[in-house]
Design a protein around this nucleic acid. Structure first.
Lengths: 240, 240
DNA sequence: CATTTTTCATTTGTCAGACATTTAAAAACA
DNA sequence: TGTTTTTAAATGTCTGACAAATGAAAAATG
């Protein structure tokens, strides 16, 4: 771990950046323990609170986890898909809501990404996948379902769809992207309410997956896309 | 801002979570200022250092930025694509390197995502895009190029390719995914060295973009994919 | 009066020392 | 040997102090 000064950022920022680089460059192994806060403070020649603030920064990014007590300390964290996923979604949601992205743009991106796994999904879907999708479609048909429950099931369904591709990286990237756009999508389904049609699209897509018909999946997704876009447009015009 | 206690996490974690939710739920507007650290400490009934650690957590996620001096403080940050991008890449790189993802899986995901924008790229590419791609291809042909420079140009080229789709969300998601996999990819190009072939694939893809031939782009990307996979396999077997 | 300089109050950044709390290992004990 | 107690090390928190930055008000200056 080096000990140089670079820009004019705060000490705690610099220190956290240095440790971060050590982690990324694998100077520090996963699971290994950092020196105690007191030792780090001596090494970097700063106060303990400065070190603590640096460590909190790293903890916020799941780069380390801390443990209290004897033989406790800060350990290099093994980042799992779940954690990374959570973070990605939070960031993406904020990004979308703060940069007034057009609904059309978000919609286009979302379905383009989903279509990206159609080919794999058609080849690799299991019977379990089909059953799970059927389960969600059944749920979505219940008339006593709240909007929240319907949307939650919608998210699950699309996630299963993505998981059909049996590529964890694809799942990670896509699930993040799709879920991040869901708040925008929910705005639509909450207001316009068009469950029957959406469910019918889901059914079509499901049949294509069952038949291992990649092109059919793509068509189904594209249909759902244009329907969603229309809904979005109507909603927008109703505000004028 | 509420003031309840929930789980058994540390105070600073809880406080940062509470503020985070206030930001996501838009209780707090972008650009607005949080109370000063002293005021927050009083509000939450904790010491100032606890508040500071909570704020550092939020700063690490780009949710707030802090400014010193009179009328300084912590401000809700407007997250821009650039920042979110950086974070996403860091997380993804660590995720990939820590979860021993198969090269084949990463490769498949990467090119599937890139193909997702072929259709749009074919329709929307501008002449400027073409020029920029040609520029990178020229660079990649230079024989005195270091491996680092070649890889950097490779990244830029694929990023331009993605940007051809003129969908900022697609660009954000894909560029993140593609760049995160680059270290794995670099491992290949560094060792096996086969620039001529890669450049020839790039040229084919470029021609398809120029001709607005979406299918051609897909074929070109798929060819590049299978070639890259072969290289990866050879490299793996040479280690046996 | 207008402009420049100075002062000042506010706020974050850092440090030092103290105590609380947690936890694993060592020591004492039965 | 097995159980309980003690102890030491580490993070978590609080307090008070000072440094440094910074904008605004006040004062000095022409």
């Amino acid at each position: 771990m080096k000990n140089e000064k670079r820009n004019n950022a705060s000490l705690s920022t610099e220190i956290s950046e240095q440790i971060k680089e050590s982690i990324i460059s694998k100077e520090l192994d996963v699971g290994s323990r950092l020196p105690s806060e007191l030792e780090l403070a001596e090494q970097f020649n700063v106060g303990r609170s400065t070190i603590r603030e640096a460590l909190k920064r790293l903890a916020a990014q799941s780069l380390i986890r801390t443990q209290r007590g004897a033989s406790g300390g800060a350990f290099i964290n093994h980042i799992k898909f779940e954690e990374a996923h959570e973070q990605q979604i939070t960031t993406s949601i904020l990004l979308l809501s703060m940069n007034d992205v057009k609904f059309e743009t978000a919609c286009e991106a979302r379905f383009a990404l989903e279509r990206a796994c159609a080919q794999f999904a058609a080849h690799r879907r299991t019977n379990t996948d089909i059953k799970e999708i059927e389960k969600e479609i059944l749920i979505q048909g219940q008339s006593n379902l709240t909007d929240e429950e319907f949307c939650a099931s919608d998210i699950r369904l699309h996630r299963i769809l993505v998981d059909c591709a049996k590529n964890p990286i694809l799942s990670y990237q896509l699930a993040g992207a799709v879920e991040a756009m869901q708040p925008l999508m929910n705005m639509i389904t909450y207001t316009v309410r068009s469950r029957e049609k959406i469910v019918s699209f889901h059914k079509t897509i499901m049949r294509s997956i069952k038949n291992r018909d990649a092109e059919g999946i793509n068509v189904g997704l594209s249909n759902l896309e244009s329907y969603t876009k229309t809904l979005g447009q109507n909603l927008l015009e109703s505000y004028k």
